[in-house]
């Protein structure tokens, strides 16, 4: 007889409904991951009690850990479902939605706040226009290497889910935004509008609310040096504050 795998899923029909656990038993397949298991549930939405239920709802897109969509809490830890191979996971597997974002349905949550926060932090480069005015500024390899480390942030939410300072109801911006501010402040053109990015980080919920638990860097699927970004933004805001208080 072929092996099966048990998956316990924390479900919720809508944001106001009570959550409940539902267990599914699925055939184990080679190279299966959490996504392929959820797909199998779609094809046969019957729980362990033999009851036909609504298929589980979750978000996913690229399935190769570059889009950030399928973030969920797997066996207690936040990560991308596509990169969670079934074989090495402890069984039964538990799947929960992230807890730091408003629930939508089942494993879906609403991460709109992350994108709004990027807007607050002026996370872009102010170009004059898209017309052809020639090359961009030359950038040394070391700076570009650092920048590339930071620019891979896919706004997946792992850092915020694991951060003890980030909660559903506060307004902490969190490591992803701090790191993006650092990224743009590093760019020669971006640096021209440095202050526009530092100001929002010095407001309530800004960099000073970081508690240095450093879970963010530990769970980041892209290994972004978020704690370095936090320290660097700490330095930039400190200088900015001193400048504001005593120089200007």
């Amino acid at each position: 007889m072929s092996q099966t795998v048990l998956i316990k899923i924390r479900r919720k029909d809508n944001p106001n409904a009570a959550p409940y656990w539902e267990t599914f038993e699925l055939p184990e397949k080679p190279f299966a991951n959490v996504i392929s298991c959820l797909q199998d549930i779609q094809k046969n939405p019957v729980n362990i009690g033999g009851v036909r239920v609504k298929p589980v709802v979750w978000d996913c897109n690229c399935l190769e850990e570059v889009c950030g969509s399928c973030t969920m809490v797997i066996n207690g830890k936040v990560r991308q479902a596509c990169a969670a191979l079934i074989d090495p996971l402890e069984k039964p597997i538990t799947l929960e939605p992230m807890s730091k974002f408003p629930a939508v349905r089942d494993l879906q949550v609403d991460r709109a706040r992350m994108f709004k926060d990027l807007e607050q932090a002026h996370a872009w480069i102010d170009i004059d226009g898209t017309h052809d005015i020639g090359e961009g500024p030359a950038i040394d390899q070391e700076t570009r290497h650092k920048a590339y480390e930071l620019s891979q942030c896919m706004t997946c939410g792992c850092c915020l889910e694991s951060c003890p300072q980030y909660t559903l109801d506060n307004n902490f911006l969190g490591p992803a935004v701090f790191s993006q501010a650092r990224y743009f402040n590093m760019h020669p053109t971006g640096a021209m509008h440095k202050d526009k990015r530092l100001e929002p980080l010095m407001k309530e919920g800004g960099i000073a609310n970081c508690g240095n638990a450093q879970n963010c860097a530990a769970v980041c699927p892209k290994h972004i040096p978020l704690t370095e970004s936090i320290a660097e933004i700490g330095r930039q805001t400190t200088f900015h504050l001193i400048k504001k208080l005593f120089v200007e």
Partner: peptide
């Protein structure tokens, strides 16, 4: 022109030793 535009938008393209 498109590559130069994307470069100006801040894309972390790989660089030569001279920074190009």
């Amino acid at each position: 022109a498109i590559i130069h535009l994307m470069d100006r938008l801040g894309v972390a393209f790989n660089r030569t030793a001279e920074g190009h």
